[in-house]
């Protein structure tokens, strides 16, 4: 399933995918379209659901730390999952 996912769906965020899934289901439930369109909608809905399910199952919390650079620009530095000990600092 995942490999067949249309590229535009594979790049959606969870919220985007869920919102489109809900919209698709509502449209299908409203009915009225030709059978081909319904089937296409169903297939897209399945792909959207798959995208959401994968994101939900595989997500790993991404933690970054805000660091202020000399010029005043801010940088978010990646922290590893087991990186508990942090040097304190107020920036």
């Amino acid at each position: 399933m995942t490999t067949q996912m249309p590229p535009d769906i594979a790049n959606l965020t969870f919220d985007e995918a869920l919102a489109e899934l809900q919209r698709t289901v509502a449209e299908l439930e409203a009915g009225g379209g030709p059978l081909e369109a319904s089937i296409a909608g169903y297939e897209r809905g399945v792909a959207l659901h798959e995208r959401c399910a994968v994101l939900l199952a595989d997500a790993e919390l991404r933690v970054r730390r805000l660091v202020e650079r000399a010029g005043g620009a801010l940088e978010a530095v990646e922290l590893r999952a087991d990186d508990e000990a942090l040097p304190d600092g107020s920036g």
Binding site: L55, E60, R62, L66, D88
Partner: peptide
């Protein structure tokens, strides 16, 4: 909600 990103700003 591990789908989130966390941005940490340390302070005293």
């Amino acid at each position: 909600w591990p789908l989130a990103q966390v941005v940490f700003a340390a302070c005293q």
